[in-house]
Each structure stands twice: as structure tokens, then as C-alpha cells.
Amino acid sequence: MDVLRTEFTLNDMPIEVTLPVRATLADAIRSTGATGTRVGCEEGICGSCTVLLDGRPARACLMLAAQARGREIRTVEGLAAGGRLHPVQESFRRHRALQCGYCTPGFMMLAVGLLEREPNASPERVRAVLASNLCRCTGYAPIVDAVLAAQQALAGEVI
């Protein structure tokens, strides 16, 4: 079977993977041991595999690993820093915005991508973007609450 070597950046670390050409970016990320990126439907519907691709949320199941060449990928493993949870993670915990947790990394990356690019996103905009991903446990309200609260926390942060 054809294999291909691909280099990309994963959470600020240069990564090199050699995988079959039909492997997806989700496969590539998970092959490095970073298994926070979950694979659900493999057709772009559920959003469990959402990562940041050059700063924008993207489905890691809808990209070949080879297409990540030279790109900057961020996953849930890259959120916490210096032993402290990212404000979005902290807010998910505080608002109990997860039950089984399978969708959680995808939702967090979706939220981080939105809040970094659009810190002043309206609540309607936040809800519309969060509608991209599926959660079968929480009924969504705690997730929306968590992201809106994280937006406040991020706005209050002194940089």
C-alpha cells in the first residue's frame, strides 16, 4: 500500500508521520499519541474530530493526512498551559458541559477557534457556530453557557 511521509506542526511541535495515503488528518494526529481528537462519524457531521487548522476550526476526518503538509494544527492537548486549564476548559468544568466527554475536545476547539477570531461574537453567533457539532448527552444548554462564560473570562484577562 502507498505510504506517504507528511510533516506538520502539532501544538507548536514539528511532527512527522508516515501513513497510508488514505489516512485522514485525524488518523495522523492520533498516531502521534495525541488521542484527545476523537473520531465519530467520519463524514463531517458530528464534529468530534474538530481541530484548529491555521487557527480555524476544521474537521480532521475530512482531510487527508497528506493535505496537512506544512500546516499548523492545534488540538485539545495544546489548550492547557503551565499546569492551568484554558479558560474554555475551566468553563466547561464549571458549567458541567460534558457527560460522557466524547464530543468535548471537538466542542472546545470549535469554541476556541471562534473566540480567538471573534472575541465579541454575539450570543446568537456563538449558538450558530456551536450548532456545527453534536453532543448526545448534555442537551447543549450547558455547552452554550460554558462558552459564553469563557468569552467573558477571556475578555477580562489582562494580557
Binding site: 463531517g44 487548522l53 476550526p57 474537521r59 475530512l62 477557534g113 471562534l114 450558530a128
Partner: peptide
């Protein structure tokens, strides 16, 4: 078109 993350790609 599609979903927010789909419009990235």
C-alpha cells in the same frame, strides 16, 4: 454553506 468548520476547507 455546510457548517462553520466546513467553510474553513
Amino acid at each position: 454553506v455546510g457548517l462553520h468548520p466546513v467553510r474553513t476547507r
